[in-house]
Amino acid sequence: MNQTRRKFLKTATYIGATTAAIGSGVLLPQRVLGAYNAEAFAAKDVNSALTASMGSDQLTASDAIKLKAPDIAENGAVVPVTVSSTLANVTAISIIASANQSPLTSSYQLTSVCEAFVSTRIKMGKTADVSAVVKADGKLYSASKEVKVTIGGCGG
C-alpha cells in the first residue's frame, strides 16, 4: 500500500461522513426556520414596524382580543404579556410596545393547528401602550393597554 492511496482513502472517508451529516440535517439545524424580518425590528415607529411585519398598518380595534399585561410594571426589563383571541383563522400575532426604540418586540406566525394564544415577557423603556396586533382572515385587529413602567428596561 503506498502513501498516496492511503491519503486518498482517508480523505474519501472524511468527505463521505460530512456529506452524510449534511444529508441527515445534523449540520443544518436552522433549515426549518423562516426568513427573519430585520426591517420590521429596525423600524422606529409603530406604523412602519407594522407594515413591515404584518403587511399593513390599518388596524381595527377588537373586543375579541384579550391582552393581559400588568397595570404597573415595577421592572421594565420583565413585563409579562399574554395575548389570546377568539377570532377565527388567526395566522399571525405581533406584540408592540409603542414607546420602545424599536416598537416591534416580537411577531409570531401561527399555523392552522395553533390556538390564538401567545405568552411571553417583554422589555419596555418607559410607560407606554402595549398593543397586540392579530392577523385573522388577512385583516388586522388590535387591542391596547397602557402599562406604567417605574424602572426602564432598555438601557441606562
Binding site: V32, S106, T111, R121
Partner: peptide
Amino acid sequence: HNGNVVMTANWGGAISKNPYLSFKFK
C-alpha cells in the same frame, strides 16, 4: 410537533433576558 412546524416566532431585542414563551395548539 412530531416533525411538523406548528409555530415560528421572530424576536427583536425587546424580549426579556432568559426568554419565556408559551403557546397552544390543537
